[in-house]
Design a protein around this nucleic acid. Structure first.
Length: 468
RNA sequence: GGUGCCGUACCCAAGUGGUAAGGGACAGGUCUGCAAAACCUCUAUGCAUCGGUUCGAAUCCGAUCGGCACCUCCA
């Protein structure tokens, strides 16, 4: 089975052919840790996790690298605007390093809760300043830079390929329409490699460099770190769709101008989670987080399931109604799986039944064709409802498919301890029912429900469960 | 102003030339003192609108309307 994936560079679904046989390098743009990640941010990491799992599924030896941007970003490319990390630091009274640690930790708590596999290498920008400086030196030697107003700029006119990924039409771009043009730039699309001047006198993060004490521009960190860990050419670079036209475009310019060779083979971008008013954004202030969802009674995996229901290249519309639908759907899925007989454990390799094998093939075809996870999930549902497939085959297939979905399909539900008090009330209701005092029985049931438990009457007597 | 994506049932959402996946919700049924739960069954002659190509169109082409994103830090 061959893997194919959509490449933003060609705008086509291409067969996946790695640069080096079985060893695959993948770099994913990570979080800027100046605030909590919202569920829109996390959608992208879920998609990257699925890609990670599919590559591993196909027996590739994957090296997955993700950066942690713990250097502050200015709110624009000029030497204007506010540094987000610094602002956060002022607001909270913590140091910028404390801020970064706090939100880095929170980020990984979120991704762990979502069953996202931690990348093989996670690297902090602040620990790779030297690599960035070396890369800027190479660019300088190649004549791709100039110094203006104290900052080092990349000159896009020295890189004829500039804008190919985003198919930018440089003549028609309306630079400066929304922000003021940096007067130091020769070309409005030039960008900063190294800042030496800052309007923040108390800028905590500063490093010495050949151009003076300062800090790196935003784009250089990804180029420097990805090449440090994956080499000067590697297979896959992922990120959110918003990065296509600026961040990734600039990364390509820097990297290829420095090395004079092709940098990344496959560009893979995840679309946004949106709501009625458009995209969720940190700068708008109000946004949803995983801890918030948990407080509202959702399992983080409800959100993961919700994301898997849509294709990664389509915008996904968030609403509480659709999250509820995902939660119900996931619970029903878990019920179907847990109802399967647990006798005769077997692995997929031991499956011989043609019908079962056809489900396996269908599943593989879906996941290997540009991550068609929604169809793969439909295959799972159809399989579970198919009366012609044995329970042991179903369990084996579920376990196998869950290496991609990561929904903890076979995880047993935790036993919830029911307080003695509730059992006493249950007894009271049973007695009332025997005496046909139904009004009293209903009243007791209402009390039990108020205490957070729900009664299900079955042929074998009442079952009590905790309301989630 | 430039660029890209999208519009499928009550909701979410697959499907890119061969006659509309899947989930949720709703409704009906079985069960029940009632309810909940469980189980079973059902739900788009039609895919924004109009026109065209074709034996055949949700799928291709054109126009119109509507939505979203990017060209600012953003996943």
């Amino acid at each position: 089975m061959n893997l194919s994936i959509y490449n933003t560079m060609s705008r086509e679904i291409e067969p996946f052919v790695p640069l080096n046989e079985k060893n695959v390098g993948m770099y994913c743009c990570g979080p800027t840790v100046y605030n909590f990640a919202h569920i829109g941010n996390l959608r992208t990491y879920i998609f990257e996790d699925v890609l990670h799992r599919i590559l591993t599924y196909n027996n590739y030896q994957l090296t997955h690298v993700m950066n942690i941007t713990d250097v502050g970003h200015l709110s624009d490319d000029g030497d204007e605007g506010e540094d987000k990390m610094v602002r956060r630091s002022h607001e909270s009274g913590k140091s910028v390093y404390e801020i970064a640690d706090l939100y880095t930790k929170a980020f990984f708590e979120d991704t762990n809760a979502l069953n996202i596999i931690t990348p093989d290498i996670t690297c902090k920008a602040t620990e790779h300043i030297e690599h960035m400086i070396n890369l800027i030196k190479r660019l300088e030697e190649g004549g791709h830079t100039y110094i203006s107003g104290g900052n080092v700029y990349f000159s896009i006119d020295t890189f004829p390929e500039y804008g190919r990924l985003a198919r930018l039409n440089l003549d028609q771009l309306n630079s400066g329409a929304r922000i003021e043009i940096d007067e130091n730039k020769k070309n409005p699309k030039d960008f900063v490699l190294w800042f030496t001047k800052s309007k923040f006198d108390n800028q905590a993060m500063r490093w010495p460099s050949p151009w003076g004490i300062g800090y790196p521009g935003w784009h250089i960190e990804c180029s420097a770190m990805s090449m440090h860990y994956l080499g000067e050419s590697f297979d896959i670079h992922c990120g959110g769709i918003d990065h296509v036209s600026v961040h990734h475009t600039n990364e390509i310019a820097q990297s290829e101008a420095a090395t004079n060779k092709p940098w990344v083979k496959y560009w893979v971008h995840g679309e946004f989670l949106i709501n009625e008013t458009g995209k969720m954004s940190k700068s708008k202030g109000e946004f949803l987080t995983i801890p918030f969802l948990k407080d509202k009674g959702y399992d983080p995996l409800d959100y993961r399931y919700f994301c898997l229901l849509g294709h990664y290249r389509s915008q996904l519309v968030f609403s509480w109604t659709s999250l509820d639908a995902a939660r119900s759907g996931r619970r029903n899925l878990m019920k179907l799986v847990s109802a399967l007989s647990k006798e005769n454990e077997k692995s997929v390799a031991e499956i011989t039944d043609q019908k079962s094998l056809s489900y396996l093939q269908e599943f593989e075809q879906h996941i290997n064709t540009d991550l068609h996870i929604p169809q793969a999930l439909a295959t799972l549902w159809t399989l579970l409802k198919d009366e012609n497939v044995s329970d042991e085959d179903k369990r084996a297939l579920c376990s196998h498919m869950d290496t991609i979905f990561a929904l903890d399909l076979l995880k047993e539900e935790k036993e919830v301890k029911i307080p003695e008090q509730i059992y006493a009330l249950l007894e009271k209701r049973a007695q009332a029912k025997i005496e046909k005092k139904y009004q009293e029985a209903d009243e007791v049931r209402a009390i039990i429900e108020e205490m957070g438990y729900v009664i299900k009457d079955t042929k074998d007597g009442p079952i009590i469960t905790k309301i989630v």
